[in-house]
Computed example of a mutant assay.
Amino acid sequence: MSKKWKHLVAICVIGGVSWMLVQSPSVDQYVTALKSQSVSVVKKNDPLLEEIKQKAKEYEVSPKNAMIDSVWKTVPGYNGLKVDILSSYKVMKDDGVFDEKKLIYKQIRPKTHLSQLKAAPIYRAHPDKPVASFLINVAWGNEYIPQMLSVLKKHNVKATFFLEGRWTKNNPELAKMITGAGHEVGNHSYTHPNMQKLSSSLTRKEIQETNDVIKAVTGVSSSLFAPPSGAFRDETVSIADELGMDTIMWSVDTIDWQKPTPSVLTERVLSRIHNGAFILMHPTESTAKSLETLIVNIKKKKLHITTVSEALKEERIMH
């Protein structure tokens, strides 16, 4: 038999087998079952389905693009919301009544993301995001760190500790205690200089050496940089960006280095708290004694206390 005839015979055999499979009762039953399932989930012209479709627009929120603001500098993006009509219908269909509490949403990402922006400092998370973050700069105050870690653990709160490189080298056990408790660590320079006046080469050295010692001591790679005393110039931010780091500032200051009473510190923070707040603090007696009150009252304001990295994410907080 020639190759041509063998090829034709093979085609005929395959076609015949395929035809028999399609005509098989079991296949026919399977297809019928699928059709009945889809019909049971969504009925044509179902009044409830039509109501969900009509009302969906009322509950949808447009995504917010990351942007550079003239005042706040870098503003992260924030996801929008779109109603998942079929999923919402499925959870409401048994009762047959529209219930906004049962709406199912899809998060819609913005078109412009933080990574696409030019390098600029970040003072807060997106103002629509109900979060707050503790930024704890560490170059001294060893005696208060265990107490602060204990309070954070009690309330299941994660903070972002910005570690000075020199401090990390001299206090490896405390640095490991911080990361071991699940907190985020960032870079606070190596020797706490005024980085606004530092040369380019020394700026790079301060940041890189701190990254290296934090990695060596804790095993963690830092991606956030907090310049000492908030002093920087544009080149500082650009160099940090070249090293893969965002420059983090703050929007609420405890001014705890002035040793205020706990009541003064607490009032100072709670009177200024807002969505997306970055709260600057240090390991001081004032902060250690105020921390629990701050956590309790910030949570009462329906703000989620998260690390800086979590706060900067585009994902919405869904209640």
Rank of each mutant, 00 (worst) to 15 (best):
K3A: 14
K4W: 11
H7R: 15
A10C: 13
V17Y: 14
S18A: 13
W19F: 14
V22Q: 08
Q23E: 10
Q29M: 12
Q29C: 13
Y30T: 06
T32N: 15
K35D: 04
N45D: 15
Q54L: 07
K57R: 08
K57P: 08
A66E: 11
M67S: 12
S70G: 04
K73Q: 12
T74R: 13
T74F: 06
T74P: 10
G80D: 01
V83F: 05
L86V: 15
S87P: 04
S87Y: 03
S88H: 00
K90H: 09
D95K: 15
D95E: 15
G96D: 01
E100H: 11
K101C: 05
Q107E: 15
Q107I: 04
R109Y: 12
T112I: 11
S115Q: 14
K118G: 13
I122L: 09
R124W: 14
H126N: 15
H126C: 08
A132Y: 05
S133Q: 06
F134K: 07
L135Q: 11
N142H: 04
E143R: 10
I145V: 08
I145K: 03
L149A: 03
H155C: 01
K158F: 01
T160C: 12
L163N: 00
N171W: 04
T179D: 04
A181S: 12
V185M: 01
N187D: 05
N187K: 00
S189K: 01
Y190H: 07
N194A: 01
S199F: 05
L202T: 02
E206P: 02
I207T: 01
Q208D: 02
E209T: 04
D212H: 11
I214Y: 01
A216T: 06
V220E: 03
S222Y: 05
S223L: 13
S223Y: 14
D234N: 15
T236C: 14
T236Q: 13
S238M: 14
A240V: 07
A240P: 09
D241L: 06
E242V: 13
D246F: 13
D246Y: 14
T247K: 09
D253H: 05
I255V: 15
D256C: 05
P262L: 00
V264P: 00
E267I: 00
G276T: 04
G276D: 07
F278G: 07
I279N: 11
I279L: 10
M281S: 09
T284D: 03
K289W: 03
T293Y: 12
I295G: 02
I295H: 02
I295T: 06
V296L: 13
V296K: 13
K301F: 02
K301T: 01
H304F: 12
H304E: 12
T306A: 10
T307L: 11
E310P: 09
K313W: 07
R316P: 12
H319E: 11
